[in-house]
Simulated scan of single mutants.
Amino acid sequence: MQSFDIVIVGAGIAGASIASALVDAGVEGARILLAEREDFPGYHTTGRSAALYSALYGNETVCALTAASRAFYLAPPPGFTDHPLLTPRGCLYIAGEDAVGELDALEATAQRVGARTTRMGAHEARAMVPVLRDELVSAALWEREAMDIDVHSLHQGYLRRARAAGVVLSTGAELRAAASEGDGWVLTFGSAKVRAATLVNAAGAWADEVARIAGVPTIGLMPLRRTAIMLDPPAGADVHRWPAVIDAGGSFYFKPDAGMLLASPADETPSPPCDAQADEWDIAVCVDRVQAAAELPVRRVARSWAGLRSFVADRSPVVGRPAAHPGFFWFAGQGGYGIQMGPALALTGASLLLTGKVPVPLAERGVDVAALSPDRSQLRQAD
């Protein structure tokens, strides 16, 4: 039976990033296993992301982690990737008369995290995205430093960095059993068993399932299905220069993507952990909402898909060891923000795993152990 110091369950962006961060933290001589239930990492949520970096998207903890991730994105470690992780896009948050207060809240977030924004009226917003309807857009907030994220390069960079340092990646390795033994675990993956001193739960939508297998209290994780579709751009329109457009009220977004428009109704339909598929009703809702705000003739839906965004009650990530199970480490509940805040969250996770503390630069941004803890009162209320 092989023995590892750390076994990480899940090799999507969560598991891959914390594996890489542990390596960067200098865990010399430690044996680390990265176990993925699918045949290749990133099959589920990681591979289905809208891939936008916006420091205004999410709650206070998420936005602080996102802002702190910017430096990594702009200057990743040498050899991490051959391509830029961020490319200019910009993001236009739009609001009708009944949702202007949402723009005020976004401006307050921008001031808190140091993001540069510009408030503008409907005429200025239409100058940027000419298809926006005047009657439904009364004001907007322009986040100029929002960027497109190369999710594939980010994910592969993490995996490459981890494997180069000796992390063992095992695919097709679904956790079947986890038995506490002394100060560690005996874990069963298919017919194979391994020993682990620490079990890191980075299983995304399946994270509560992993906890149940290990006999650890769950965190009330809620996988929520989100739909995305690809649309043809309007005839003759140069959409390449358009920013991402997000409804400040949270009812839809669209952005240029590979010469087309990626759109979503920002739906959050409860779902069991699964290989999520787009629902015809959600596709129709997406088309209706986008067309209500923009003059976008939809002749066809070129492609559709869905992914699961997994949240807990307070919509902040869950990172840390439960007091009653110190050999178990949560790295879950990242919702739809796991990519944009990934670098800073991985750094935080590695630090909490090794020292029990949040790194000082992140603590100075307001990232707090208590806000991430699996023992926080908000989670117990959710149960």
Rank of each mutant, 00 (worst) to 15 (best):
G184Y: 04
V369I: 10
L296Q: 03
A228I: 15
S54H: 09
A21I: 03
G307M: 03
L353R: 00
C286R: 07
L33N: 04
A324Y: 06
G101Q: 02
L224H: 12
A178W: 00
H83I: 13
D232E: 15
A202P: 11
P233H: 12
E181S: 13
F329N: 03
M341K: 12
P233I: 10
V27P: 15
D183C: 14
S310W: 03
V200N: 09
T355E: 06
N201Q: 02
F311E: 09
I6L: 03
V137W: 00
V319P: 00
Y73S: 05
P361Q: 00
S17K: 04
S138Y: 11
L56D: 00
A235C: 14
L141N: 03
V7N: 05
H44D: 00
A211M: 01
V298P: 12
G157L: 02
E209L: 15
G336F: 07
W206C: 02
F252Q: 03
F72G: 11
R31I: 11
A162Y: 01
A197H: 15
E135H: 10
P273W: 03
A51L: 03
R365W: 04
W142C: 07
V216P: 05
C274S: 08
D247W: 02
P234K: 14
A115I: 04
V312N: 08
A292K: 15
G166C: 11
F40I: 13
W330V: 02
A25V: 01
L22W: 10
M1V: 13
A344I: 01
F329Q: 04
R70E: 13
L354G: 10
V210E: 06
D383M: 13
D104R: 07
A306F: 15
G47M: 05
R376H: 01
T118D: 11
M120G: 09
W281T: 15
R315N: 12
G182C: 07
G121L: 00
D267R: 04
L52D: 10
L154P: 11
S20K: 02
S69I: 05
S3N: 13
L224W: 11
L65C: 00
V245C: 07
A139G: 09
S316F: 05
R48I: 02
L221Y: 02
A35N: 07
A25I: 00
C274K: 08
A294C: 06
A125D: 01
A276W: 05
S271N: 08
I339W: 10
A237Q: 08
P77K: 11
K255H: 12
R133I: 01
Q2I: 13
A371P: 03
L353G: 09
V100G: 08
L262Y: 09
L65V: 01
L22I: 07
F329T: 04
T117Y: 00
V7A: 10
R365N: 12
V245P: 14
G182T: 02
G250V: 01
S3R: 13
P322Q: 00
W185E: 08
S271C: 13
D238F: 01
G338F: 05
A346M: 06
D82P: 14
A323G: 04
W281C: 15
R365T: 09
L52G: 10
A122V: 02
V168T: 14
R112Y: 05
A164I: 05
L92R: 05
D183S: 12
W185Q: 03
A179V: 14
D267E: 11
E174W: 13
F80L: 05
V369G: 09
A294Q: 11
V7Q: 08
